[in-house]
Amino acid sequence: MSATGIASAGRAQGSGRRNLLATVASLRAWLFLIVLLVTFEIWSQVAYGVSFIASGANIRSIAVFAVAPVLLGLGQTLVIISGGIDLSVGFTMGLASVIAALVVNATGNALGDGGALVAAIVAALAVCLVPGWVNGQIVARLKVPPFICTLGMYGVTRGAAYIIANGTTVPVSNSWLTTLGNGRIAGFPIVVLVTLLIVLAVHYLLAESLTGQYTYAIGGNSQATLRAGVDVRKLTTRLYILSALTAGIGGILYTGRFAAGAPQAGEPLLLDSIAAVVIGGASLFGGSGTVSGTIIGALIIAVIQYGLVFLDVEPFWQFIAVGLVIIVSVLVDQSQKRIGGGGRADG
């Protein structure tokens, strides 16, 4: 038998340039973050004579700014890796924020502040199950493109959030909830600690568990995954539910932080969450992405948003800055794929 010792062919050519590009591409999010921090540091030193980075208050603020993009980005990461997208996360967050506020207010007398907070968390997350489940079912069972399905759900959650909130924000006064939103433990904002726990849980789910394994497999080849006996529908539904739940947690933390439920709480976060995932190196075609990438992506967004506030730049510039980072990030990714024959661009 002629040895089929199929040595990987066609890998040698042009590998120097390709390796460099691949390295740059895989580290691009880190590079962005570093460039950004250095830029803001110099800017801050020159303009105000103070350090941007060497400030506990700034670091804390950036971390708090990053909470919502991280949370919604985590859910978005799962969905995008599976080859989908969730456009409804922003108003699911708003819906959860409003529900949490209303339930806290309604149950405060009967249950006390602590009990009301528990009731609010349970109610808000329970409500989020609905858009998550419906998204998952429509995408997985009825084969509606995720972009269309979740765009519809964007409208539904948006309308529902405003209707339930009566078109305005819902102020709350619950000491537990506002402590959750603004308190600190050993100097660390509680919202950041809560987010860290969710990050660890999602990291385990994606990188170590069977659910994560199948999430990548579905994104790589859903037909093959189905043929391998994996319940792709159930998995897909689970991912959209998880996406809605991380958005819901974001909404609850928002209500705590601002002592008010707001239907528009997550309005900018649709873009921010997708941006975090893409900047973090995931492919919008599915099959790739990591929790750590998304966190760096979210940090980049938070640094831009907070940094521009800190440097007293008109806040609208942040949209331009984040937009440019997305475009450059995708360009780097694509040029790497085009030159690197090993990875086909079709994903």
Partner: peptide, 18 residues
């Protein structure tokens, strides 16, 4: 239809029976 391109050979050989 056979393989998930983004996964390694281990993940592909054991897909569905990890």
């Amino acid at each position: 239809l056979a393989l998930a391109d983004n996964l390694d050979i281990g993940a592909n050989v054991f897909l569905g029976r990890e």
